[in-house]
C-alpha cells in the first residue's frame, strides 16, 4: 500500500465505509424495534427514529408479567433443552455407526435418513398432529420435544456422520485391538475428537427449536403452554396498536438467540458452510 494517499482513495477504507453503511441499513429494523421498546406510544408516533427521551422499562415489565412472557420464556427453554438433549443422545451414536462401522445396508439406511432432509414439515404435520393426539401428547411440551427432535434428526445424523468420517479409522481400531468395546471406543475416542461438530450440532438444534413456529402452532393449544413465538403472536393480536409493548415482547424473544449466536458464531457459521456444501 502506498503511503500518503488520501483516505478516500484507499480502496480498503472505502470498502469499509460502504459495508458499514450497508450494514446500518440492513440492521435498521432491529434497532428501530429496540429503541421503540423503550418509548411511549406518543414518542413512537412522533419521533420514530430518535433515541427515547427516557429509557423506561415499563413495556418490558408489563410484557414479562402481564403478557405472560415469563411463562413463554420458560416453556421455550424447556422444549429447547429437551430437544437438544434428545438429538444429542440419538444422533451421535447413529452418526458414528454410519461413519465408522461396517454393516450390511449402511449406505441404504443412510440415504433413508437423507430423504428426511428433503421432506418438508408441512407434508407430515397433519398426521403428526393426529398421531400425538392418540398418544395424548397434544398440548404438552414433551410432544413438541419428541417431534422437534425427530425433525432435527436427518440433518443431525448427516452432520455427525460427516464429521466422524474424517476421523482416522486406525484410532478406533487400535482401541478395538486393546479389547475396548464399540461403545467404549465411541465414548472415549470418537466423541472427544468430534467435539467441534458436537458443539455445532448443539448450536444448530438450539436455533431451530428455539425459533420454531409451525410445530408449536399446531401442537400447542393453551396459552400457558405457548412458546415465545406463539406467545408473541397472540400478544401482538391483543395489543395491536401498542407498538412499545409489542416491541418489548419482540426484544425479549430475540435476545437469547442473539446471545447464543454471538458466543458460538464461529462454530455455527463453519458448521453451516460444511453441512450445506458437502
Amino acid at each position: 500500500m502506498r503511503t500518503g494517499v488520501a483516505p478516500w482513495r484507499n480502496p480498503q477504507i472505502l470498502l469499509w465505509a460502504v459495508l458499514l453503511v450497508l450494514l446500518a441499513i440492513v440492521t435498521v429494523p432491529i434497532f428501530w424495534a429496540i429503541l421503540a421498546s423503550f418509548k411511549t406510544n406518543m414518542e413512537i408516533v412522533n419521533q420514530p427514529f430518535s433515541l427515547p427521551k427516557t429509557w423506561n422499562f415499563d413495556n418490558y415489565v408489563k410484557a414479562w408479567n402481564l403478557g405472560n412472557f415469563n411463562s413463554y420464556f420458560w416453556n421455550t427453554t424447556l422444549i429447547t433443552i429437551g430437544g437438544m438433549v434428545l438429538v444429542l443422545v440419538v444422533a451421535c451414536p447413529a452418526g458414528y455407526a454410519f461413519a465408522q462401522m461396517k454393516f450390511k445396508g449402511n449406505n441404504l439406511l443412510f440415504y433413508l435418513f437423507l430423504l428426511g432432509m428433503a421432506l418438508p414439515v408441512q407434508a407430515i404435520i397433519i398426521p403428526v398432529f393426529y398421531q400425538l393426539k392418540t398418544f395424548g401428547l397434544v398440548d404438552s411440551l414433551s410432544g413438541v420435544v419428541l417431534v422437534s427432535a425427530g425433525l432435527a434428526l436427518p440433518f443431525s445424523v448427516f452432520l455427525m456422520r460427516n464429521s466422524m468420517k474424517d476421523i482416522q479409522k486406525e484410532l478406533r481400531e487400535s482401541a478395538y485391538v486393546d479389547g475396548a468395546s464399540e461403545w467404549r471406543a465411541f465414548f472415549s475416542i470418537m466423541l472427544p475428537l468430534a467435539k467441534p461438530a458436537v458443539v455445532a450440532l448443539l448450536v444448530f438444534t438450539f436455533m431451530s427449536i428455539w425459533n420454531d413456529f409451525l410445530l408449536p402452532l399446531v401442537l400447542l393449544i393453551s396459552n400457558d403452554k405457548f412458546t415465545l413465538s406463539l406467545g408473541l403472536l397472540s400478544f401482538q393480536g391483543e395489543n395491536s396498536t401498542n407498538f412499545g409493548l409489542i416491541f418489548a415482547g419482540t426484544v425479549i424473544s430475540m435476545i437469547p438467540s442473539i446471545i447464543v449466536y454471538l458466543i458460538f458464531q464461529r462454530q455455527f457459521v463453519e458448521g453451516m458452510s460444511e453441512g450445506a456444501v458437502k
Binding site: F213, S229, L232, Q236, I246, M254, I258
Partner: peptide, 10 residues
C-alpha cells in the same frame, strides 16, 4: 438468527 415470529411481527 431471529425467529420467524420476531421477524414477522417486526
Amino acid at each position: 438468527v431471529l425467529s420467524l415470529a420476531v421477524i414477522g411481527v417486526l
